[in-house]
Nucleic acid binder design. Structure first.
Lengths: 328, 328
DNA sequence: TTGAAAGCGCTAACAA
DNA sequence: TTGTTAGCGCTTTCAA
């Protein structure tokens, strides 16, 4: 019918006719049925978002941002929390392809099978990776400068006289943590300092054990770089339990800023990253891909976003005052 | 075709034929096309979730839980963060109905127009409300005992000798906060105490102002009940800035537990509620509704979940209360 | 127990 | 500029 033309505002419709159709649509309360379009091979006005853990504030903020942007562009957002399960992640991606979603934003939990992923993309589901890269397929990606951020933190400690700086954390096969460890290593080696890694500290008990194992040694670290939020908190509690004063006895910088970082005692120096920026850039890239779907061989874009040191008090080199830095 | 019968395993197919079809499906890599079913009037294997703010940890945990359960039942989850906008919320609900979702889990941000909502339900989208009730439509609901939780907190303070107890917070037209205020009021009046409300404290500045306005008075409150997480944190900071000691000079109990509540100094006494339970119950209710779709007039279910007092140190009456060390 | 026919609502291709 | 025809992949009805 002409109706179809009106709806998709095709140029070749007499204004008069168009008006009449529009009126009729109003009166009859007509609503377009997307399913029919799908059947004809169109894509659904929906994007997918897969993250390792939606209950993690960082990803929750990403999801919030993406959903809002997507909505503003007319898309609904299908969110999957993969629970760090790569197989699940890929299955859900395949499912989304089958359901003809317009695109997928993916924080991968590992290294999904490249062949299967390629097939997903070939089925018409453009993918943009963020926070963690997706190797082997030429996807766009938005990443954080984890390595540089870690370097900056460790440099900061070194610049203020620390030589025995430990790196504590866990989950070191996850990309962001691995990068942060690399940053730690490179800063240390640049200054001829011996790295001291403890990468299995994933609980309060673990942190307490680590503190115990280390505090009485002659060469006990004078500063600690924690590779992530969780570790930072566990260490803080462990130090508090063992009455090790932060920062006077040991300095601490943690990767990942968090809302209460400026509130707790002592206010924690962190390396912060903007979940909102990350999500926004990723979404824009995806929208680009979707809109220029047919575009031949646009080369994949890689965007790097900074991680910035937020100096508060736990690193011991902030002039003590009542004023504390605000969260980033 | 017979194929259709096999897929939906209709009884009337010879086992032999069935086997052959199944083999063919395997070989050809056949994948069912959901869109066609939609066109014939079936529902999509998808549920919707609308929350006021997905970046709020509480709702993030709800979303995480619901997505997981939905996935395990074969549903995808469409998540919308309404930004506390009732109009947006209702628009998205309508959109979901049009897209033939199987059901909707809704944390409403106000009181959406009952007529429009009824139409949504009539279009075949069952709705279950949680965290906040949906009045006027006979929907199922899962709610927290906000009022009882608040009462318990205030009773706790009263039982330990406090008489001048202030209630501080904001957003008192939101259902949960309103209920908590009611709980505060009823506990106070039960003991013949005069309520002291300050319900516009929504920032650190506001909290500091409030502290200033109150600390030098002869009848300054000896205890505070904070109606939500944000207020709790702001008050804590304000007290710290003004060197008002918690709990020795003023006791504090905050509604909403949070991850760092036991970690900060002093560990905060809170009233906690389980986002996981809330989400789980809501999902089950929705699945019920979906599965017995045709069921005539099943009366709406209301489930109430407890909010429980978690006594730590900020209320000053913890049995194991140790000295809270000066911030290192 | 299986097959054939029709149609869900839309759009692409063509005809008028 | 508008209308006609056909078909997307499935299910439902009826016939074989």
């Amino acid at each position: 019918m002409t109706v179809s033309r009106v709806i998709n505002d095709h140029p070749a419709v007499k204004p008069n006719t168009k008006k009449k159709v529009l009126t009729a649509i109003q009166q009859l309360g007509y609503e377009r049925n997307e399913a029919a379009g799908l059947l004809k091979g169109q894509r659904a006005m929906m994007i997918g978002l897969i993250v390792p853990d939606l209950s993690d504030v960082f990803f929750a903020i990403c999801a919030n941002t993406i959903e809002k942007l997507a909505r503003e562009s007319g898309y609904l957002t299908l969110i999957v929390s993969s629970g760090h399960d790569v197989e699940l992640e890929i299955q859900q991606a395949e499912l989304m392809a089958r359901r003809k979603l317009s695109g997928l934003l993916l924080v991968t939990s590992g290294a999904p099978d490249a062949e299967r992923m390629k097939r997903v993309i070939a089925e018409g589901l453009p993918i943009v990776a963020f926070d963690r890269p997706l190797d082997g397929l030429g996807t766009d990606a938005v990443l954080i400068e984890n390595r540089l951020g870690a370097e900056e933190a460790v440099e900061h400690l070194i610049a203020h006289g620390h030589k025995r700086i430990a790196c504590v954390g866990f989950d070191s096969d996850a990309y962001p943590v691995a990068e942060r460890v690399k940053g730690y290593r490179s800063a240390m080696s640049l200054h001829g300092l011996r790295p001291n890694l403890s990468m299995k500290v994933d609980s309060l008990e673990g942190a307490t054990k680590w503190v115990d194992s280390v505090r009485l040694k002659a060469d006990a670290p004078t500063a600690v770089f924690a590779t992530n939020y969780r570790t930072t908190v566990h260490l803080l509690r462990a130090f508090s339990e063992r009455k090790v004063k932060v920062p006077s006895e040991v300095a601490l910088i943690g990767f990942d800023d968090f809302e209460l970082a400026p509130v707790i005692a002592p206010p924690v120096t962190t390396v912060g990253q903007s979940a909102v920026d990350l999500a926004r850039r990723a979404f824009r890239l995806l929208l680009d891909r979707i809109e220029r779907a047919g575009d031949t061989e646009r080369s994949p874009e890689k965007i790097l976003l900074p991680a910035t040191l937020i100096v508060r008090e736990s690193c011991g080199v902030h002039p003590r005052s009542k004023k504390t830095a605000e969260p980033a």
